[in-house]
Nucleic acid binder design. Structure first.
Lengths: 199, 199
DNA sequence: TCACAACATGAATACTTATTCAGTATTATA
DNA sequence: TATAATACTGAATAAGTATTCATGTTGTGA
């Protein structure tokens, strides 16, 4: 499959390219990838059908572009926030908090990333595997520094991703219908993780 | 939308109905809901295109049927396994273990349930909301019995679902590529949840 | 202001797929 | 074994959609 994106060269071209991307993010979020037709995108963007193909050979290549943009954004935000924080527990707390904030401010991102499992399984695997590996690095250092118990870092990274994702999901979809301040929820979650759940 | 399924009345009818369901589960798992066409189903099942419409008015109604079957199975299995176990911590351990076992024995179920988020968001919400509410009931009792700290039961139920789902996911997709015995992994997870992660 | 590259259009084409339905076969049972 | 109920067929119809391309427009550097 053709995967190459044509990069626009002028101010106008860049604007159209970005308009397609932004419109598509909105539609992918609202209707899902498979329910979004090329004509839906071009109609919503107010451009001709053919204009889409000036920049993207097909819908999948556009999806991959969007996914990579999100991945880049989210990792960068977490890295920036975490960098200024001391101690592994606080780093995790801020990391999860940043993740949840990102999910709240970009609800489409959350949704679109998960859909990769049904669009191309390998995309999904690469995404979470990559995330977990970055996580592990930090966790290993914390064990060396004596801030954490000597746990299986790979497993813990999946546990923390699972917690972040489901708590993010709960807040996003408002499951349970009584969500308070996201930060407060994250603090509670971290307290539970720290103390353990059972007596 | 027409949602009613026509129930077969004879032995042959029941067999065809079940053949359609089983074939579809396989295809939904391998190709996803949206990439699976009615003709894919009838071809794979070796029946005529029209036969599909004898039992299901459309693909969505078949999906909903399958989702409810899974939901029923999984809850029943967990309930059965948990019933014979003493103590909340052990109940949770066996519950998650049963969940992970179910995911391993029915990898399609796992996949198909999650896809509901992209097929009909409300299906997804109902599914996990229902699951969480059942979870909460048990957790509340455990707090009364003094087996658990006085935590936010709703939040903890989402945490436990997140952990179970991501650990299940890791095992299923073999993320990280070094999965041991699922039971051993679950035991590790429960130890971490019990003790807490940080010093 | 000319020339040319980049950008944009949208009707036309070529598929793909859902769904129907008139006809045929099978099965149960009276 | 007649007959009614149920099950099954698959060609035909009807829609919907991706993608192309001949043509037109815009912006910019020489």
């Amino acid at each position: 499959m053709e995967t190459n994106i044509k990069v626009p060269k002028t101010r106008n071209g860049k604007a159209t390219f970005q308009l397609i991307v932004d419109t598509t993010i909105d539609l992918f979020y609202k209707q899902g990838y498979f329910n979004t037709k090329i004509t839906d995108i071009t109609n919503a963007a107010g451009i001709a059908a053919g204009t889409f193909y000036l920049y993207f050979p097909n819908k999948l290549s556009l999806y991959k572009y969007i996914l990579m943009e999100f991945q880049h954004d989210i990792r960068k935000q977490i890295a920036v926030q975490v960098a200024t924080v001391e101690g592994r527990f606080n780093k995790e707390r801020i990391g999860i908090k940043t993740f949840v904030h990102y999910a709240l401010q970009n609800p489409h991102a959350y949704n679109i990333i998960w859909e990769s499992l049904y669009i191309d399984k390998q995309l999904f695997i690469d995404y979470y595997d990559g995330f977990a590996k970055r996580y592990e690095r930090g966790l290993k250092q914390s064990i060396i520094d004596g801030e954490m118990h000597d746990v299986d870092t790979e497993l813990v990274s999946y546990i923390l991703m699972g917690v972040a994702n489901f708590v993010g999901l709960k807040i996003l979809l408002d499951l349970g219908h009584h969500n308070e301040d996201p930060d407060a929820i994250v603090d509670q979650v971290m307290e539970i993780i720290k103390t353990g759940i059972f007596k």
